[in-house]
């Protein structure tokens, strides 16, 4: 039997937790691009910040623990763009396959071959 009482994982206020980790990392270019896509697509009305938060929450605690911040954000941006019908799953799948085929590193894969 589930003991879930409706208190969702992301709603963290007051829960037990460890010491604050003050380590800081710089953002990589791909992370800055995720941030820019999030701002631009929401400013243009394709989703709301609430829609992004909803997607992040629905990804669950495992995603929070195992994925980096901008990994979760690109997943949420994509989820909202698919729901808004900006592109289809098929278009995304084909393009991701094509991107992967360009090379083994981000630098290589970010080069557009058909440009």
């Amino acid at each position: 039997m589930s003991e879930f009482d409706g208190h969702r994982w992301h709603d963290m206020g007051g829960r037990e937790a460890g010491a604050i980790d003050l380590a800081q990392h710089d953002y990589a270019l791909w992370e800055k691009r995720v941030d820019a896509l999030m701002v631009l697509a929401s400013e243009k009305g394709h989703f709301t910040v609430d829609g992004l938060r909803r997607a992040l929450e629905d990804m669950g605690e495992q995603a929070f623990e195992t994925m980096s911040y901008y990994e979760r954000w690109i997943a949420a941006v994509n989820q909202n763009l698919l729901e808004a019908g900006v592109y289809t799953i098929e278009e995304l799948g084909r393009r991701m396959e094509e991107v992967q085929a360009r090379g083994a590193t981000y630098g290589e894969a970010a080069e557009k071959r058909d440009a």
């Binding site: 009482d5 409706g6 208190h7 969702r8 206020g13 007051g14 938060r53 909803r54």
Partner: peptide, 13 residues
């Protein structure tokens, strides 16, 4: 209330 879904009233309050 404890509905599922996206709400912004934190549980601790």
């Amino acid at each position: 209330r404890m509905p599922p879904g996206h709400v912004r009233a934190p549980a601790y309050l």
